[in-house]
């Protein structure tokens, strides 16, 4: 069964499955130990390299297990981890498992433009107002009408010495928003890149000392970015294209990495995101097989009661009109052929002398005849008339 079409072949909303979008992706860390090598970390030795890629490798397959930053001894203690997801995803959660005592201040950011600009998704701090100038997150989520980056408690140290940073997109979103019908929520969950900014080592607690007394490094594993490849309800899976780029396998007459536009010939109505109630498939223009291109006209769309706004371009086979549904001047419909036939329009072939013009009736093919002339193409004298020598009045009354 095709998730994007029902049993009757009608389009329906379809979405890719939930995946860890960070799995196998390269992670850029602003600081990684082992260069120069020390007793426990050597970037040139695979057995002792604590590289950032360990954050997104398949769990349990790598050794060592954890990425480690360089030793931090004095401020600033900022270290960033950045992962590009390759295309837009709709986030569900982000999590990061710390291998040592978790930092007491973390900022979680996202980009929607492949790293050109960044906006916060949330903050995690033992002192929200001092670190980020924000109050602690209210228990019921944001008070405003839309999602916002809130400040949550810092990850707690676990008995094993580590800790877990966990963020759900719902944490920053007011209750009651529905992804299908809320553009602000759609915007909130959309990300092409994730950045985690670690800003205060656990060893400092809540203090802002510029120097740590004991050498410290951040250490973490299992960076998970739970989300769905963003296809706007028009694809059930994402694939790698011939250039190795992740793209949606677009259906419903859509195209683009995120199925966010209609295919060139599918512009009979505006592009829309699919919802659970309506697939909003892009519709092919109705050109009766006589055109390969069309354009969308909003005015015609409104006038049609929001049903059809496509205008066929470059009608071929001597057809004309918005849907290539009638014959162009100088041609008429052959009643023996269907409208989609390449030869549905026949040349008028009006007689150069007997006809008063070159344009025939587009339905009947009747040319306009001069006085006393008859026939579909005006090529004979009518009964009671005979041919004259004058091309201006080719038929005159029989004496």
């Amino acid at each position: 069964a095709d998730p994007c079409y029902d049993e009757a072949g009608e389009p329906r909303c379809c979405i890719p499955g939930l995946v860890n979008a960070a799995l196998g992706r390269e992670v850029l860390a602003s600081s990684t130990c082992g260069r120069p090598a020390n007793r426990i970390c050597d970037s040139s030795d695979p057995q002792r390299a604590h590289s950032a890629d360990l954050l997104t490798s398949v769990p349990g397959t790598a050794s060592p297990l954890c990425w480690r930053s360089d030793l931090l001894q004095r401020a600033p203690f900022n270290v960033t981890l950045t992962v590009a997801l390759g295309k837009a995803f709709e986030l569900v959660f982000v999590s990061l498992r710390f291998c040592s005592a978790p930092p007491t201040s973390v900022a979680l950011l996202k980009s929607q433009d492949h790293g050109r600009s960044w906006v916060p998704l949330g903050f995690f701090s033992s002192s929200c107002s001092l670190d980020y100038g924000r109050p602690p997150a209210p228990a019921g989520g944001p008070a405003g009408p839309g999602p916002e980056a809130l400040c949550f408690p810092a990850p707690q140290a676990q008995p094993d010495g580590g800790g877990l940073l966990a963020f759900s997109v719902q944490d920053g979103s007011p209750q009651g928003l529905d992804l299908d019908n809320s553009p602000v929520l759609q915007d909130w969950v959309t990300a092409t890149d994730i950045r985690i900014l670690l800003t205060r080592p656990a060893i400092l607690g809540d203090t802002r000392d510029p120097v740590v007394t004991v050498p410290y490094s951040y250490s973490a594993t299992e960076l998970q970015v739970g989300g769905r490849c963003k296809c706007n309800g028009h694809a059930s899976r994402c694939l790698l294209d011939s250039h190795g780029h992740l793209i949606c396998d677009c259906q419903h007459g859509t195209e683009g990495p995120d199925c966010s536009r209609c295919k060139p010939f599918f512009c009979d109505r505006p592009w829309q995101r699919a919802t659970g109630q309506e697939a909003h498939a892009c519709l092919a223009c109705s050109c009766n097989g006589h055109a390969r291109r069309c354009r969308f006209n909003m005015e015609l769309y409104r006038l049609s009661g929001r049903r059809s706004g496509g205008v066929c371009l470059n009608c071929r086979h001597n057809t004309a009109g918005r849907h290539c549904h009638y014959c162009r001047e100088g041609f008429y419909r052959d009643p023996g052929r269907v409208l989609s036939d390449r030869r549905a329009c026949r040349a008028c072939d009006c007689h150069p002398v007997g006809a008063a013009g070159k344009t025939c009736n587009q339905t009947t093919g009747q040319c306009p005849c001069k006085d006393g002339v008859t026939g579909l193409t005006c090529n004979r004298c009518a009964p009671g008339f005979q041919q004259s020598r004058s091309p201006v009045a080719p038929c005159v009354k029989t004496p």
């Binding site: 007689h351 150069p352 002398v353 090529n379 004979r380 009518a382 020598r389 004058s390 091309p391 201006v392």
Partner: peptide
């Protein structure tokens, strides 16, 4: 009765050279 088709050869184009169709 079906009338014969117009015979182009019978037309005198002397005064209507500018109207004469290209053959």
């Amino acid at each position: 009765d079906v009338m014969p088709t117009l015979d182009m050869a019978l037309f005198d184009w002397t005064d209507y050279e500018d109207l004469k169709p290209e053959v």
